[in-house]
Design a protein around this nucleic acid. Structure first.
Lengths: 362, 362
DNA sequence: CTGTTAGCGCATTCAG
DNA sequence: CTGAATGCGCTAACAG
């Protein structure tokens, strides 16, 4: 058995009695160490590590034992360098409004991390922040820090997507859009969601229904607004003057409610583009002693964890967030593994009726 | 200029007219490509990339231009393999109750990610999940996927910490404890927090004060409970029978409130070990038409985003989460960079009084 | 089934 | 200030 490189020699000189200084630590075992211990070539070790079936059972067991005895771990960097995968996937959120402000994104990220970890992948967070310092998104993939990207809710016509496409960097879009057929898109049906909510309100007898938007550059915000406007036209409901801009945040929901509630002809119901704004509105209503739903009905979008724990429980359009995460992960992994799978999937949301909606006042 | 390895030759054969199949993409530029383009050796390129001062200004600029022209990115894997750092840090949460259920952890993780990204590091999430498949925490460091670990709220006497210590793996503990002086600990002063809250309640005239615990194995849960018991003894307040077990979740707060509110001698105030449980309790109170704070006063722990947006606004003990994150990051980075910095820092929390506390009933 | 031969792209010596 | 040599630990191709 030959010893390419001196690492083994060095390692074997370091016995149990060696004195280590400061941060020094016994050198990590390599495949070569394992190979020697198991009396095979290090290629055999590599095969065992990679579950290559072409290894005699007996040999495999011997190697496995050696791996355990030496507490060997494959060096991920070496693996990546030798042409493998990083087993990391990055997730990117809209640039300037980071995750913290958006509960929905957090829930999504967590679901994605779970789905990813089931496949032995890790999730690298906040890849978008790199914009600040370095360059663009794809840099992180090119640096071989990750194999692909999950891009969440990019602004419409985001130039960065073009770069990803050009460089053939595997990625999938959640809550985004692209006309390129080579681009996978997973989304929820905002139009349907809006329609469900509006029908529910109209069914209760509401005719003046306010609407609070999300950030205008996001497709979901745009689609929900459009669907609202369309619905109003189709049903002959008044809409202009009842649309109030929001930015997805608790605070903006609070303010939007105040504005709409002070309207000379106050709406009897308001649809918010997400739950967080609706929660802000509930607070605003409390503060102004406006009773929900007696005076005004409120509907949100997302069905976050807290939405059922506020008072009154929030009627909302639930996003199939689990399915969304799972599909996105399936897709990105397929693309990474070079089984290109370009799909556009639009998932139907579901209306969850709680106590924040009721018959219109008077 | 010699060409060690055939990569350059291969690269130069691939001109603009080359046809790429399926997922293929023009090969990524390496230092060697840059070197050729700039007419220097690739070592000079390496120096420029690493900001080594020993490069003539002129040469440096030429190299910089070549880097830009070829849109070269250093290959992170190769860098790591050659002995560098990964520039990744992992974060680990208590095993079985994953992040989702604990809003506080999310806020913490996000703050940490921000602090980390300012230093050019990435945060790898959910490293703890690896337990499921592979082995232990330190594996991920040994695999060279990350340089160090931030361990959040490990159970008391967590054996895994010992392993980290033995292997000299850089890590820092948040909301944990260790008797080893080589272990950095950043925490908030739970005793002080509890005392602040209790004093506030006693100051309002409360004498029967209930307490809802967190998960018993966590040091914060234990410390808060202990401080509560101590305070009661010192002030001659009744305590037994008024302690109700919780698990940090909204649901457990809901249940705990129900139990304590049904108590034959109902407490006039309840201190919850975190905000989330307190929010669950607010919901429970609404559902049972118990007025807060008229009938019962409620205090939480953490001061999460939502705590000021519920009705009534939650009185709570605010954790200095920003400072916590920043200190943890400073510390772990110092340790990674081999400037061992073993410190124990206990940060003081702050009482935030909102509307959920008032004079006791009757 | 197992071993041999080559690099992956870079940083760390050391020479000039 | 710059360049040459060497090897990090591993996988992919090919030999036997």
């Amino acid at each position: 058995l030959k010893k390419p490189g001196g690492s083994l020699a060095a390692a074997s000189q370091l016995g149990k009695n060696t004195v280590y200084f400061s941060r020094e630590v016994p050198p990590m075992a390599t495949q070569l160490d394992v190979a020697e211990n198991a009396n095979v070539s290090y290629m055999t070790v590599s095969r065992v590590v990679n579950n290559n079936p072409n290894v005699k059972k007996e040999t495999r067991e011997r190697v496995l034992k050696a791996i355990k005895d030496l507490s060997y771990f494959p060096n991920s960097a070496a693996r990546v360098l030798a042409g493998g995968k990083t087993n990391n996937v990055g997730i990117v959120f809209p640039k300037d409004e980071y995750v913290l402000t958006r509960q929905y994104f957090i829930e999504l990220a967590i679901k994605i991390e779970q789905a990813l970890s089931e496949q032995g992948y890790h999730l690298i967070l906040g890849a978008g922040q790199a914009d600040l310092g370095y360059g663009d998104l794809h840099q992180l993939v090119k640096e071989r820090k990750m194999d692909g990207l999950i891009v969440v809710a990019p602004p419409t016509a985001d130039q960065r997507l073009r770069v990803l496409l050009e460089r053939k960097i595997p990625f999938v879009l959640i809550h985004g859009e692209s006309d390129d057929p080579a681009c996978s898109v997973i989304d929820t049906d905002s139009s349907l969601g809006t329609t469900l909510a509006m029908r529910h309100l109209v069914g209760l007898g509401h005719t003046r229904i306010g609407f609070v938007t999300g950030k205008p550059l996001e497709i979901n915000a745009r689609d929900r607004l459009n669907a609202y406007v369309q619905f109003c036209h189709a049903e002959n409901l008044p809409d202009d003057d009842l649309v109030c801009p929001g930015d997805w945040s608790l605070e903006s929901g609070y303010e939007a409610f105040q504005r709409l509630a002070s309207h000379s002809r106050r709406p009897t119901a308001i649809l918010f583009s997400n739950d967080q704004m609706a929660l802000g509105a509930i607070k605003a209503a409390h503060d102004r002693a406006i009773a929900i739903p007696r005076d005004i009905s409120l509907v949100g979008f997302d069905d976050m964890k807290y939405s059922s724990f506020v008072t009154p429980g929030l009627t909302t359009v639930r996003m199939p967030i689990d399915k969304l995460a799972r599909l996105a992960v399936d897709n990105i992994l397929a693309n990474i593994l070079c089984e290109p799978k370009h799909q556009k999937i639009i998932l139907p949301p579901q209306l969850i009726v709680r106590e924040s909606t009721g018959l219109p006042a008077r």
